[in-house]
């Protein structure tokens, strides 16, 4: 593992019964990077996060700053906000935060931690009396308590309002400036775009695109052409078409070159009833990425 590698994942596979949630995934992150794991629900993002934390049985290798997941967690190398993490009832915020701080080999000074996580004024509160956004901030404080060099966040802003999100990402940028490696799973393209300096698109348990936000957006800025056709054409081979789908008579083509695709479709004076052209959603874009080769975007295109 080259120096400066915060996270090294090789051939990671996670199966739940017959379902393969992560399928031979490779990913290396450099120290100090802010990385978005982007993908639709069920893509395997959470499972990757859980495997890095040693929460799910997996095959392949995961090294966090050179350590196994369990050793990294014990050493306080990794802090995490889980999607299904929670706080203990019948306790106060201060007690929970202090419990985790004291269990860490290093610990973030309480006064500073409270300001960074935005939980000032909450320390005396019973955990059961917190709002959704407040709980998330307490969970952030727990993740940061050990001043971890690697921070894993699984859909961290899902319970936050707009104001809360803005404050949250401001904090994340400040942490990144301090050299913390921040990895967050999200299905919001905008969030990945605004915060991450590297976007890794995950679909079907694999990395289907990897690059800067601009590179990934360029790669997935496809458009969808839909129309009705009763003939059985061979659509997949048309210029620009990256994915084709038929539902009854409704044909739906994903293309990275609308003009070329339309010209080819209309060649020979064919009629295209109910023609529509629109921007591809992230879901469709990721689907189109999955059906393509696994060459990382920005590598050689």
């Amino acid at each position: 593992m080259p120096p400066g590698t915060a996270l090294d994942i090789r051939d990671l596979t996670v199966r739940y019964g017959d379902t393969t949630a992560v399928d031979g995934l490779d990913l290396q992150l450099r120290t100090g990077e802010t990385v978005a794991l982007l993908g639709p629900n069920g893509a395997g993002k959470s499972t990757v996060v859980n495997a890095v934390l040693g929460l799910v049985p997996s095959t392949g290798t995961v090294r966090v700053l050179g350590r196994t997941p369990a050793a990294a967690v014990r050493a306080g190398c990794v802090g995490a906000m889980l999607q299904h993490g929670g706080l203990p009832g019948e306790s106060r915020v201060r007690e929970v935060v202090e419990l985790v701080r004291r269990s860490c080999p290093r610990s973030w000074p309480l006064d500073d931690l409270v300001v960074t996580a935005g939980i000032d004024g909450l320390l005396g509160r019973p955990v059961d009396a917190l709002s959704g956004g407040q709980r998330q901030r307490v969970l952030l404080a727990l993740a940061l308590a050990g001043e971890p060099p690697l921070l894993l966040l699984d859909e961290p802003t899902s319970a936050m309002d707009v104001e809360g999100r803005r404050a949250f990402w401001t904090t994340m940028r400040r942490l990144a400036d301090r050299g913390t490696t921040v990895v967050f799973a999200t299905h919001h393209l905008e969030e990945a775009d605004a915060v991450a300096d590297r976007v890794v698109v995950v679909a079907g348990g694999q990395v289907v695109a990897d690059g800067t936000a601009a590179q990934v957006k360029a790669g997935i800025a496809g458009r969808t052409v839909t129309f009705t056709a009763d003939e059985d054409w061979r659509f997949a081979g048309l210029p620009g078409v990256t994915a084709a789908d038929r539902q009854g008579e409704r044909i739906s083509l994903t293309t990275d070159n609308v003009e070329a695709t339309l010209l080819a479709l209309l060649a020979g004076g064919r009629r295209l009833p109910d023609l529509q052209v629109r921007g591809a959603s992230l879901e469709e874009a990721v689907l189109s990425l999955t059906s393509r080769s696994r060459t990382p975007i920005g590598a050689d295109r």
């Binding site: 990794v78 889980l82 299904h84 929670g86 269990s103 727990l142």
Partner: peptide
């Protein structure tokens, strides 16, 4: 069982507490 349901046991698993 409450701590399991609330996600607290899961949260504890990602802290250095063994």
């Amino acid at each position: 069982s409450f701590d399991r349901a609330s996600g607290w046991l899961r949260q504890l698993r990602v802290t250095p507490v063994a």
